[in-house]
Design a protein around this nucleic acid. Structure first.
Lengths: 140, 140
DNA sequence: GTCCATGCAAAGACTTTGCACTGGT
DNA sequence: ACCAGTGCAAAGTCTTTGCATGGAC
């Protein structure tokens, strides 16, 4: 039912080579020079398909467009509200948080919160990144 | 510098009367019959202004359009991925979470994570709500 | 009278979709 | 040969913006 195509391979390996949490358009731009025949709509469709298959992940951030992450392990993101970039949080003091969230989910799942079937929890930090703090005059 | 207008009063009291976490369009629809002269753009502008002033809050949910909340106290939301509605989580087992997040923020703020100045943390649950679970045949 | 806020429509950013065609199976 | 996947353009959704007008101060 599902077919393998060259486009899917190219899009998959492109997004997996980008550590910047790219938007679909950024993935499109990254492969467009080398593969100008691949269309924007295909990039959108394939990225969502890869995310549904679990090959990559959609980053769960409020108030910004979709981005994708080649890392599929649980980790936390921090979003710069000024330059709109996204970074991984790899700080030891955060380590307990994911375990805590897991515990909360386990305690309350399934169907314990307002009759919901909980399928996930979203957590992220937001702030101003190092670069933007050091360049306060810039609009970025 | 900032002026009070009738439109702002109407929009403010309208959103504060809605417990459904309305989108700007839903607020617009709610007041449009009684005040048909108020424009959609004004609703967008005023809602964001009210949120910036702290009179209301923007709900921080990934992968969905902006919604607003008349509640300004810290609490957690759960988002139904099927009908797209948002509910408050008022379940005692969740109570510790906000304190935990506060502690994490205090421990790591300021400038401790990747050189960031952290301005906030976003947390939400997602799942399928009671109504949608009981009406699985519906597209909703 | 000044000038911020509004209303409208247009534009913008992001994403999905209809349709004819291509290519994987 | 079938039909899922693709490419393109159009449309859709949500939000912002330019500009002339109106109302708060």
């Amino acid at each position: 039912m599902s077919r393998n195509t060259i486009q899917q391979d190219i899009i998959c390996s492109t997004v997996k080579s980008m550590s910047t949490h790219p938007s679909p358009d950024e993935v499109f731009e990254a492969l467009h020079k080398e593969y100008p025949s691949i269309g924007r709509a295909t990039v959108y469709r394939v990225l969502n398909k890869l995310a549904n298959k679990g090959e990559i992940k959609k980053v769960n951030l409020p108030h910004t467009a979709d981005r994708f992450d080649f890392r599929t392990d649980d980790h936390i993101h921090i979003h710069c509200k000024k330059c709109n970039r996204v970074f991984d949080v790899d700080f030891h003091a955060i380590e307990g948080l994911i375990d805590y969230l897991d515990k909360v989910l386990t305690l309350n799942n399934p169907l314990k919160i307002n009759g919901f079937e909980i399928t996930g929890a979203n957590f992220s930090f937001e702030g101003i990144c190092k670069d933007c703090r050091h360049n306060k005059q810039d609009t970025v």
